[in-house]
Design a protein around this nucleic acid. Structure first.
Lengths: 339, 339
DNA sequence: CCAAAAATTGCAACCGGTTGCAATTTTGAT
DNA sequence: ATCAAAATTGCAACCGGTTGCAATTTTTGG
């Protein structure tokens, strides 16, 4: 169906190698030959078959983009940035949706069958073993938004979720809250575990502040709303650290429909700083996660691994910061406001 | 690096064809041979190279998933459904982000180089010529969420945006609004054009109702909010048909921060019925677009085209319907409520 | 038990490219 | 003009599979 190299060679009256070489960067071809071949190619509408060439070169320029997070709006931005970043470098994202998938082997096998040059795992709700499965299969892998580890087995590009938890704790304490709570995402997510651990460890330095915790089923609006509705039935805390912005928005909705007001009755702080957090009618105080930087760095890393597959695994951790908006009470007068 | 068919053949002491056949569905192999080969394959950890086989079979099972819509949260759901639907049928989505891309040829060339079996174009903001470029290049294409046409040049799976516009017009008239307006998305989007045309044509049957219109820069929260803020400075209409839910939410935010209330002072109706529209603190009256059905049908269609590439182009149009929530005044007493 | 039909297997060519090597041509310095 | 070095080109083998065909083996039916 499609025009092949052979036909171009015939038309131009040259060998197949000559045609191949004009389309291979850095190969030895004279100007005259190049023009001749290019003309024939143009006339025939030829463009080389990337898959056939991958057979000998061993490079497909295919990158597996693996995620199980197709419900948190922040991941639309993640996919946007990843796909554009990869495309800009001539790489092609093969998207793998891991939702409901428990066996990493299947995805690993599939991606190997397609000879992907590398894999980016973008999710915080997958166990670290998942990305390791790719490494074990000897395919270069970067785990973006994964769990920080001081002895990483695969490349990690992420934030320090433990530190985020601490940061929130300090923020709430500084504002004088005396009963605070953690409203986390699914307890199985490493991000939830780490944020929780950091939060609790910092709060333990302030024993006068009563600290409680609870977990929602998912990082979703409904989960946040339902959990908060439940909490409002007994004695709620003064401020909640929600494990994620979507959870926060669900919680806000529950509070408002109970006739209470934010931040006067209850304070909320989220995590992610998704686009929506800026929206006037949400205006969520939250922790900014530097998505753009994480993704840029992840792409640089996977590109580097193409040339150096056995590169020693590293963890790249980007700093997060509090974004003051309207869902926490302001700092008391004796402290300088950061808003 | 990876184990090849040849090595398996050697280990099993059989011909390469025998190995190939045990991994090819429907090929002729005896039970004995199969077991022998499978054992060797297992011991070596072999799995066939999908790209190499595509060379002879002419099938890659790769499907280009092309979109330029990476900012509207509804598209996260679209990607989720598409990727899972394709995976379930053994197809692999090669994601192409067309944001800022004006020349279709580039994407067409790229996807042909990777020998995709078909292409799904998922967007309402691309000109019809874009999907036609794939057809012209002889690659099976389905345009999901594209413009309805009675003489389609490519397969379309979509809603009837003109009819949606009419439906909204009837809805607003039935509720007794006397000054209504269309607050559209980008004027260049065919979906905007069609919704606008339908809305205006139906409104022209009710000359006593004052009808105006305006367009936002994008299908985004900020665009909707800014446009509505501008509108509020002169005399606003009683009800707005926003071209999309995200625009609606932006408009809602503008109205609320101006101290006006919805639906008492101003009514809003959106289009899409995205997940967020259901959220308690948004509770948007909107037109439901049957995304799930559109995607299922698109996948069925592209699968059918794999066997029948020259299938005659058809348009599959799914019905939309009004979802009553809280942003329009109720129907007057003399009409039955649908809410 | 035998012949004919059906099933199985291997050979070798092919899919659409790439690349090492040797032959040929061009270049450049004398 | 001469010759060595450098650049260009084609041949042929190869990448990892598939498949038509013919040879061989097994099955079936009488």
């Amino acid at each position: 169906m499609a025009v092949t190299l052979k036909e171009v060679a015939q038309r131009a009256g040259v060998s197949r190698s000559a045609v191949s070489r004009t389309f291979t960067h850095g190969a030895s071809v004279s100007e005259k030959m190049r023009r001749r071949v290019e003309r024939a190619a143009r006339e025939l509408g030829y463009s080389p078959n990337a898959l056939a060439s991958s057979l000998t070169t061993g490079r497909t320029k295919l990158i597996g983009l693996v995620s199980n997070n197709f419900h948190n709006p922040i991941f639309l931005e993640v996919f946007d940035l990843f796909t554009r970043g990869l495309q800009d470098r001539g790489l092609r994202p093969l998207l793998v949706n891991l939702t409901n998938e428990t066996a990493p082997e299947n995805s690993v096998r599939m991606l190997r069958q397609y000879s992907v040059d590398g894999v980016v795992v973008a999710s915080s709700t997958l166990p670290p073993g998942f990305s390791k499965a790719f490494r074990d299969a000897n395919v270069p892998v970067v785990h973006s938004f994964g769990r920080y580890s001081s002895a990483p087995q695969v490349h990690i590009v992420s934030i320090d979720n433990v530190e985020c938890g601490r940061m929130v704790a300090r923020t709430l304490v500084a504002r004088g809250y005396e009963r605070v709570a953690f409203l986390g995402g699914p307890e199985s997510a490493t991000s939830t575990q780490d944020r929780f651990a950091g939060f609790m460890s910092e709060m333990s330095l302030h024993p006068q502040v009563k600290t409680t915790h609870t977990f929602a089923d998912a990082y979703s609006f409904d989960a946040g709303r339902n959990e908060m509705l439940r909490l409002l039935q007994s004695e709620p805390a003064e401020a909640y650290f929600c494990g994620d912005d979507v959870l926060s928005i669900g919680a806000l909705s529950a509070i408002e429909s109970s006739g209470l007001s934010v931040p006067d009755d209850i304070g909320i702080i989220g995590l992610n700083d998704m686009e929506m957090a800026r929206w006037e009618n949400i205006n969520l105080t939250t922790i900014h996660q530097p998505i753009r930087e994480i993704i840029t760095s992840s792409i640089e890393l996977i590109v580097a691994m193409l040339d150096e597959p056995d590169r020693y695994p590293e963890a790249r951790i980007f700093p997060s910061s509090v974004v003051e908006r309207g869902t926490l009470r302001p700092l008391p007068d004796n402290a300088p406001s950061t808003g």
